[in-house]
Design a protein around this nucleic acid. Structure first.
Lengths: 199, 199
DNA sequence: GTTGGTGGCCAACACTTGTTGACAAGGCTA
DNA sequence: TAGCCTTGTCAACAAGTGTTGGCCACCAAC
């Protein structure tokens, strides 16, 4: 039965390591790079396999199909700080800075954004990251927890929008701004979305 | 020579109308719809032709190739108000409201956003709209015209981000907000990006 | 009526895509 | 040594892509 191997994505789990773990990792790395650079449709399995230095059929064996590969490659942890650990009055600056770092160090965010705009399951993956990782932060910080989803959505809109303009569409002025400048402008906005009373 | 007909996109120009103008318009309408719904790669010429009720080869005759079709279909005017006509103190609310209207009434914006994230010429089209239509508004409103591009980029980041969360990724809280609510939250942000002294 | 251009369809092209199955080499255990 | 599972390659499939050229029907002018 040519069913894909189950959950051999994370070598950190208890199961014994296999000889193929290196190949699996190479596929994932290549997949993230291609998805981030080209989006879902133009990131072909053949191109990913070529970049990983193996045969395309290996991708199918280990991840079932292209959707499965994307699901594995787009697993993502924002690594947001513990809500209690950040000073209430400076959440805005802390979050903006953190997101900029994550965005510049990890291809997966760009991949998610590119794929999310064109592909249904990419968009769903994005919604899940938002629900599971962004909303809780808002809930811990904003005055009325019932409003957390809305405030989190506002924050996400500003941060995703800046990432879009800066890293994907590459509007020259957005790309040219320094990291500090971006933080200085966006932090008050995010701060307001999170902590200020309703307008 | 099978060169595509030149600039027969706008029947409003002085040239005499042709019998094929209706077909051309139908193609453009279908193209905008497919590009907006599916992005560049998945919006196939065959699907567009089917939706327009004609043969795929007609698309080639009138627009040369797929890129040419996209170029024609993504021509876009934001129809921003004259800078002088809006009260300096309420530019924020006026702009946010205007953009929400445009976004909900015209497929082209969604098409531009979807295609811009995956396709090089889509992104370039997007940068041009930004440069030619958004920056001038900022230049007319913000205190130091030399800062106009940066301030325009900030405004664009917030507005594009909200459009992304609301219309493309469909984060539930963003999609559920009323128009007035979005304006109430975003207007102060845009106002600050445009008129406030540097942070 | 004949000519010529215009609008349209049809069938095919060369190519790429995701995906599959057969098969060979290498190591593990019995 | 024999057998089995794993890792891997190769060649092919069916479907769908953008694109092309040939052909037919109409319409106007001569």
């Amino acid at each position: 039965m040519p069913e894909p191997d189950t959950d051999r994505t994370a070598p950190s789990t208890a199961a014994a390591p296999r000889r193929s773990d290196a190949t699996r990792a190479a596929i994932l790395r290549a997949a993230r790079e291609r998805f981030a650079a080209d989006g879902y449709e133009r990131a072909t399995i053949r191109a990913i396999a070529r970049e990983a230095g193996i045969d395309p059929s290996m991708v199918m064996r280990y991840y079932g199909n292209k959707e499965g590969l994307f699901a594995a490659a787009s697993e993502f942890d924002l690594r947001l700080p513990e809500p209690d650990s950040l000073p209430r009055a400076r959440v805005g600056a802390a979050l903006v800075g953190h997101f900029l770092d994550r965005w510049e160090r990890d291809d997966v965010l760009t991949a998610l954004l590119r794929v999310g705009t064109t592909n249904a399951s990419g968009a769903e993956r994005m919604r899940n990251v938002f629900r599971d990782q962004v909303v809780p932060i808002a809930a811990a910080v904003c005055p009325d927890p019932a409003e957390a989803p809305r405030r989190a959505a506002l924050v996400a809109s500003q941060i995703l929008g800046m990432a879009l303009a800066r890293y994907v569409l590459r509007f020259p002025p957005a790309a040219a701004m320094s990291r500090e400048e971006v933080v200085a402008w966006l932090a008050p906005t995010v701060q307001r979305y999170l902590t200020e009373e309703r307008p």
